[in-house]
C-alpha cells in the first residue's frame, strides 16, 4: 500500500467520523429538553466534526493552496461559533427559557434583574 492509499483511507475514516459527530449533534438538538442543553450539542459538530471533515478533505486534496483555505474555514468557524452561542445562550437565559429544575447549581439567576414580561417556563 502506497502513501497515497494510506492518505485516502485516513481521509475516508475522517469524513465518516465527522459525519457521525454531526449526526450525534442533530440527535442532541432533537432530544435535549431545554435550549441551553441543546446548544452544547450545537457547538460540538461545528468544532470537532467540522475539524475532522476538513482534515479528511485536506488529506484527500493534498494541495498547499487548498490547505490555506481550509485553515481559514477552521479559524473562522472557531472564532464565530462562540460569539453566536454566547449571544443565543445569554438571550435565552435572560428570557427565562431555562429549565431551572434541571440545574443542580445556579449562580446566575439571583444576580440578574428580573424581567416581569418574560414568560416563565
Amino acid at each position: 500500500m502506497s502513501l497515497v492509499d494510506v492518505a485516502d483511507v485516513a481521509a475516508g475514516v475522517c469524513l465518516v467520523v465527522g459525519a457521525l459527530l454531526t449526526l450525534i449533534a442533530a440527535i442532541g438538538i432533537l432530544r435535549f429538553p431545554d435550549l441551553l442543553t441543546r446548544m452544547h450539542s450545537a457547538t460540538k459538530p461545528q468544532v470537532l466534526g467540522l475539524l475532522v471533515i476538513l482534515l479528511g478533505l485536506a488529506l484527500r486534496l493534498r494541495e498547499p493552496a487548498a490547505l490555506g483555505l481550509l485553515v481559514m474555514v477552521a479559524v473562522f468557524q472557531m472564532v464565530t461559533t462562540p460569539i453566536g452561542s454566547h449571544m443565543v445562550g445569554r438571550a435565552s437565559f435572560r428570557a427565562g427559557q431555562v429549565r431551572r429544575d434541571l440545574l443542580v447549581v445556579d449562580d446566575l439567576s439571583h444576580t440578574l434583574p428580573v424581567d416581569p414580561t418574560s414568560p416563565e417556563k
Binding site: Q46, M72, V73, A74, F76, Q77, T80, T81, I83, G84, S85, M87, V88, R90, A91, S92, R94, A95, G96, D115, T117, S118
Partner: peptide, 18 residues
C-alpha cells in the same frame, strides 16, 4: 463559515428580555 453565525446573533439581539 464566516456568515453562519450572523443569523443567530441578530435573532438573539432582538429577542425580548435580552
Amino acid at each position: 463559515s464566516l456568515l453562519g453565525f450572523v443569523g443567530s446573533v441578530s435573532v438573539a439581539r432582538f429577542t425580548q428580555g435580552s
